[in-house]
Amino acid sequence: MNKFCCLFITAWVTVVMLLSCKSPNEDLPYLGQTTQADGKTVHHKVGNFSHYNQDSVLVTNKSLADKVIVADFFFTSCPSICPKVIREMMKIQEAFKDEPMVTFLSFTIDPKRDDVARLKLYADNLGIDQSRWYFLTGDKDATFDLANTFFVAAFEDKDAPGGFDHSGKIILVDKEGHVRSFSEGTDPSTTPKLINDIRRLVDLYKANQK
């Protein structure tokens, strides 16, 4: 990128910032359908899961009840968008490497090929902190249904590269199972906002603890 390009991009950033002077402390929204039951507001929740991670440990909603979750759906032999999405996940993990409340989940949508051993090799080759990033395999249909509740479209498609079609969203889920933010894993420019939203959510929990 040359000097002038930088200059003009800076100009744009300034213009956008001036135009969008919203308070950064505004509450994080609840995404998805909100219903009323017995006079109470009920927000959308992600589905239950029960998947094995790269170390053959069973991981469920319950076992992560005190964690803020950052999730994506992928498969190891994915020739299309997955490496890009994984790289954004790595950036996010790096940003929260000292924050144990944040846990990363990558669900495979190709469990037939992606068994525990293969997920382990993948994680080893990525060189990430595996104590807080689980690569998860489980029942295929259950995983596809789960993806829907994360607002990620995932389905088998012979004509798609690698045999599966799916979107590269990275989803933020709070401790109660509500979807609070997301980024497009294929578009690095959406990552900083997600990092910011995760930070706000973590700070909110910390403030409420006191």
């Binding site: 490496p83 790289r87 993948y122 990525l126």
Partner: peptide, 16 residues
């Protein structure tokens, strides 16, 4: 190519 080798050409760990 950028899907795998990335926009900046740096690849991905020991995968690409």
């Amino acid at each position: 190519c950028a899907n795998c080798h990335m926009e900046d050409g740096t690849g991905l760990s020991r995968l690409i």
